[in-house]
């Protein structure tokens, strides 16, 4: 009987997923890339034409402006989430076992709720007649309602809330696993609070923080429902436009070019951040 041992075992294990990814992710992706260089007419994709027109069109100020907004909103969300998640992760890491579980559950819950339902929930809270505006007006703090949705603020609130756990969880795991004696040792050797944080704690949890931030950022870049529902039509992001071009206009070549651009930009930014952080980490540790 043939035995699955040694080097064949991992191959057999990964094969199902590899095949799935090749068939349903890599293949369509390649097809999209090819399509993005084709022409389009009402009769469909024109495979007899090879062109860069879809990409040159994307260089129009209108599309670049939307790309820049997408990056700006995604990055702001990631930085804001990181800043908010750090103290919370630290607090949770200091708690006893069971309490940690409850707190984490609290922050994971938003992810378990359908994104459209969440966005509708936010509408009830953020709209001109929503809870926040009604309360603030009732207390006489504001005269006219604050514009909390149908703008970038709305998208930001929705995304920070929706993707919070992707930074919180890895950060919490890293902080919970941190050897506390290192902090005592640093203090013992005369380090102040800030110095302990920047030279001991931060370098050690940096990989986790960075991993979380990268996941968070890529999810923000690809987010569709939250920007569509809380941002509305005045502040379009790339994913919404790609949806509309693909599904309403049925211009798949141009839609594909848009998707490729979004993918390349996202991957480029992720690569860049990894490089910057890697060199930064060396600096912190060795200089």
């Amino acid at each position: 009987m043939a035995r699955l041992t040694g080097r064949w075992l991992p191959v057999t294990f990964t094969a199902p997923l590899v095949i799935l990814m090749l068939l349903f992710f890599v293949w369509p992706l390649l097809e999209s890339i090819v399509n993005s260089f084709h022409g389009y007419s009402l009769a469909g994709i024109d495979t007899s034409v090879w062109t860069l027109a879809n990409y040159t069109k994307l260089m129009e100020p209108f599309y670049l402006g939307i790309l820049w907004r997408t990056i700006r909103v995604s990055l702001t969300t990631t930085l804001l989430t990181a800043a908010l998640a750090f103290p919370i992760a630290w607090y949770i890491a200091e708690l006893k076992g069971r309490a940690q579980g409850y707190w984490l559950l609290l922050f994971v819950t938003p992810w378990l709720i359908n994104v459209a339902v969440k966005a509708f929930g936010w509408t009830l809270i953020l709209s001109a007649t929503g809870v926040i505006n009604t309360t603030l007006r009732g207390l006489g703090i504001i005269d006219s309602p604050l514009q909390l949705m149908f703008n970038e603020t709305g998208i930001l609130i929705g995304l920070v809330h929706g993707h919070f756990m992707f930074i919180l969880l890895p950060l919490w795991a890293a902080l919970a696993g941190l050897d506390r004696s290192l902090i005592w040792a640093a203090k013992n050797l005369g380090s102040g609070q800030i110095s302990v944080f920047t030279r001991v704690v931060l370098p050690m949890v940096l990989p986790a923080l960075l991993a979380g931030m990268i996941i968070n950022f890529t999810m923000n870049m690809a987010a569709f429902a939250t920007p569509a529902l809380l941002g509305g039509s005045r502040v379009r992001v790339m994913s919404y436009l790609a949806y509309e071009i693909n599904l309403v206009d049925l211009n798949w070549p141009f839609g594909a070019a848009m998707a490729v651009l979004l993918l390349v930009v996202t991957m480029g930014l992720v690569q860049m951040s990894q490089k910057v952080t890697a060199s930064g980490k060396r600096k912190v540790l060795f200089e």
Binding site: L4, T5, L9, T12, F13, A15, P16, I19, L20, L23
Partner: peptide, 21 residues
């Protein structure tokens, strides 16, 4: 454990191949 894992892996592999066809 290895035996069980092998069975699971084979079953998943078979299911994937069958599923795509």
């Amino acid at each position: 454990i290895e035996k069980t894992l092998r069975k699971v892996a084979l079953a998943a592999f078979a299911a994937t191949v069958a599923g795509t066809g």
